[in-house]
Structure formats: structure tokens, C-alpha cells
Amino acid sequence: MKKIIIGDQIVKSFGEGEEKRRVLGGVSACINEGEFVAVMGPSGSGKSTLLFALSGTDGIDGGKVMVDGKDISEIGETELSDLRRSKMGFVFQQPTMLKNLNILDNIILPSMRGNRKNAAKMTETARALMKRVGIAELEKRDITQVSGGQLQRAGICRALMNSPKVIFGDEPTGALNSQTAQEIMDLFSEINAEGTAVMLVTHDAKVAARAERILFMNDGTIASELTLPKFDGSNPDDRIEKVTVKMREIGI
């Protein structure tokens, strides 16, 4: 299986002097083409920092991150930004959107850099995605006029605008009720089934159980890993039980 992103011995610290704290202590991890990876661990274990490092969103202090064969430490910020925009999508717990734009324009905006001549095509793509995720009727709404679940669906549309190879999600269901969270996870599963790789940071065993590979982090290292069959909707309780058993084994 082809590796899209490879992190080799990643080291990352925050703070200075006596306040300096190592968050990642030589972590190696990869994302394979078309796979679904979840990252779990207690608060402060380094799971979000690993996601930001692998996506090139945050710099690292040591080690190497390769994206499609490119060492991202050796390319400029503009090229790195273009690489993220063309090959990656991002969904966060609280989607960051502009209050002065409606839902449709918020979805389109990040994809417009260098594509202003293709505005009509971008709009068509955004509307097709909105229809797919069930928010087509909300395109003219302000971001304050929709629910949290609808806003998260808009965030997923935005992440898919450039047909990325991988989508990163940092606690994408953390602010949602259980029913809405399940609906959002159904979308991630559909996206993954179509060939897009997904990496989600989560504290929720139900969310992690959708993945085929789960990395369990503790104290800045990968403490353990669990592999499951590709999710097909069957035996969800059995998958969740395997995740929770592993969590108990390593004390997280």
C-alpha cells in the first residue's frame, strides 16, 4: 500500500527554558493511501500535535515529514501551503468561518487562491458537495443561522473542495450530540470508502472504531496500535469493545 505521508522520528517541544516541554518524543507514523486512521490518547499526549506535524500545519524540532515523497522541511511556505491545499483537507471541532460570508462563500473561499478564473466551477463544485451532505438549502445562510451539525457538514464540504488525498480531522465530533456525531461519521466513512484517506484525532471510542488502524498515544509516544477490518457497518459494538479493551490495557 502506497504511503501518502511518512513521519520519521518526529520531535516537537513547546515553551522555552524551564517551561520547555517535549510533546512528541521521536514519533514515527504514516498514512497510507485510502486508509482510515484514528489517533487516541489522554489530553496532552501529543495526538493533535502529531496531526499538525504530519499535515505540515506546524513545524517540528527534529525528524522528518515526507508528503508524496517531498521532505516538507525543504520547501518554502508558499509551496507548502499549495501542497496542503491541493492534497489535504481539514475539519476541526469548531469550523473557523467568516461571519461576513454566507455558508456557500465560506466553503469556496479557501479554494479560490490561484483559481479566481474558475469561480463558476468552484461554485458548482461547492453546491454539488452541499447537496451530497444534505445542506443544499443553506447556501445563503449566515454561519449564525445554522446548527453545529450543519456547520460541520459545511466544514466537510470545504475540506473536499480540491479532491484531497487525505482529510485530517481534529475532534470533528467533539462538540456534537450523539446522533449528529454519528451522521458526521457516516460521511467520513463514505468519503473514505470512495478512496480518500482519513486521519481523525478523537477521544471517543465510537469514532475510533470506524477506523481500520488506531494509534494510541501516551506521553508523546505511540504506546500501542490496533488494526481492524475495513468498516462496513457490521458489528459496530464488537469494534467499539476492541477499542475500549485496548484503551484499558494501556491505561488511557
Rank of each mutant, 00 (worst) to 15 (best):
I184D: 00
T125L: 13
Q150S: 09
L129I: 00
Q179W: 06
T202E: 00
D82A: 07
E249K: 05
V23A: 10
V11Q: 11
M88K: 04
D238C: 11
L138Y: 06
E74S: 13
L98M: 14
Q179F: 08
L51R: 02
G69S: 08
I6Y: 09
R239S: 06
T123W: 00
G59T: 15
V11K: 15
R248I: 09
M217H: 03
E194Y: 10
L51A: 08
G233R: 09
V39C: 09
V27F: 05
N192Y: 05
T221L: 12
A205Y: 01
F36S: 01
T227S: 12
I75S: 00
A197L: 12
V146E: 07
G69Q: 13
T125F: 03
L187P: 01
E139T: 13
K87I: 08
S178W: 07
S147I: 12
L160H: 08
G25F: 11
S224N: 14
T202G: 09
I250F: 12
I184P: 00
T180K: 03
K131T: 12
I167M: 05
G15M: 05
F188L: 07
S28T: 14
V39E: 01
A211M: 03
M199F: 06
T49L: 10
I60S: 04
F52R: 07
G134M: 14
M247F: 05
G56W: 10
E183L: 11
E18Y: 11
E19W: 01
L54D: 00
V166L: 06
S28P: 09
T96R: 15
M247T: 02
G174K: 00
T57R: 14
T96W: 13
K87A: 12
D204E: 13
L151A: 13
T244Y: 06
L200N: 07
A119V: 02
V207D: 01
G69R: 14
K140T: 10
S111T: 04
G220C: 10
L187F: 02
F231N: 15
N192K: 12
A159L: 02
N118T: 07
L176M: 03
M112W: 06
L228W: 09
V65L: 03
N218D: 15
P164I: 15
D142C: 06
M88L: 15
P95F: 11
D238K: 14
M185R: 03
K12S: 02
S189N: 11
G56Q: 07
I6C: 13
D61E: 11
T49D: 08
H203Q: 12
D186N: 11
G174R: 00
E139H: 12
K70G: 07
N106V: 01
M122D: 06
C30N: 11
T144A: 04
G25S: 15
L176G: 01
N118Y: 13
V166Q: 04
I72N: 03
L98R: 02
D58H: 13
S189G: 04
G7S: 04
V146D: 09
V11G: 06
E124A: 15
S111Q: 06
R84V: 12
H203D: 02
N218A: 14
E19F: 04
T227A: 11
R210I: 08
A205K: 08
E225V: 14
S178E: 14
L200M: 10
K140L: 14
D232P: 05
G17M: 12
K242G: 00
I167S: 06
L151N: 04
M199A: 15
A159Q: 01
L138I: 10
I108H: 03
M40D: 00
N177S: 09
D237Q: 13
V39M: 07
Q145V: 15
Q182Y: 14
